[in-house]
């Protein structure tokens, strides 16, 4: 065991290696490790956040679906109502129209009946006159009895 100048040489080596480690090895490695740690933590946080957001989105979509269902049901109900109403209205209109037509027809029929009756009355009077003429022949003067016949026509 002899101590000699090798000691200085080794001390220089040691100093050089400490310097290299302090300057070029430790800081970049430390930075890389710290960055990686941060990245992993950030990634996990982002994953957690995304999961939460997915949950929210699921909830939102379920809400939207429920809303849409409710709305569509509402629309269907309204449409049904409206259709029933329309049918009712149509029925009403048709009834009114039909009544009108029936009334018109009835009026016409009445008119025709009146007309026919008037005609019949005329014809019957003529027929009666003709019959009477035949029966009475000369004894009956049409002009002299016209007044009486007219009164008779009125009675029929």
């Amino acid at each position: 065991m002899n101590i000699n100048a090798t000691l200085f040489g080794e001390a220089i080596w040691f100093g050089v290696f400490i310097w290299i480690t302090m300057k070029y090895v430790w800081p970049p490695l430390q930075k890389a490790m710290a960055d990686r740690q941060k990245m992993i933590a950030d990634g996990l946080a982002a994953g957690e956040r995304a999961k939460h957001e997915l949950e929210l989105a699921g909830k939102r979509s379920a809400d939207a679906l429920r809303d849409a269902k409710a709305k569509s049901a509402e629309i269907v109900t309204a449409a049904e109502k409206r259709a029933a109403q329309m049918v009712e209205e149509a029925k009403q209109t048709a009834k009114v129209e039909a009544d009108k037509v029936v009334a018109a027809a009835k009026a016409e029929i009445a008119q025709q009946v009146e007309h026919a009756r008037a005609e019949l009355r005329g014809r019957l009077a003529d027929l009666a006159v003709a019959g009477a003429e035949r029966i009475l022949k000369r004894e009956v003067d049409a002009r002299a009895h016209a007044e009486m016949l007219a009164a008779l026509k009125q009675e029929l």
Binding site: E10, A11, F14
Partner: peptide, 14 residues
Amino acid sequence: PTTDPNLTFAMSLT
């Protein structure tokens, strides 16, 4: 080298 006391003393004195 670590069996050379020069090296170990160099390190410990540093």
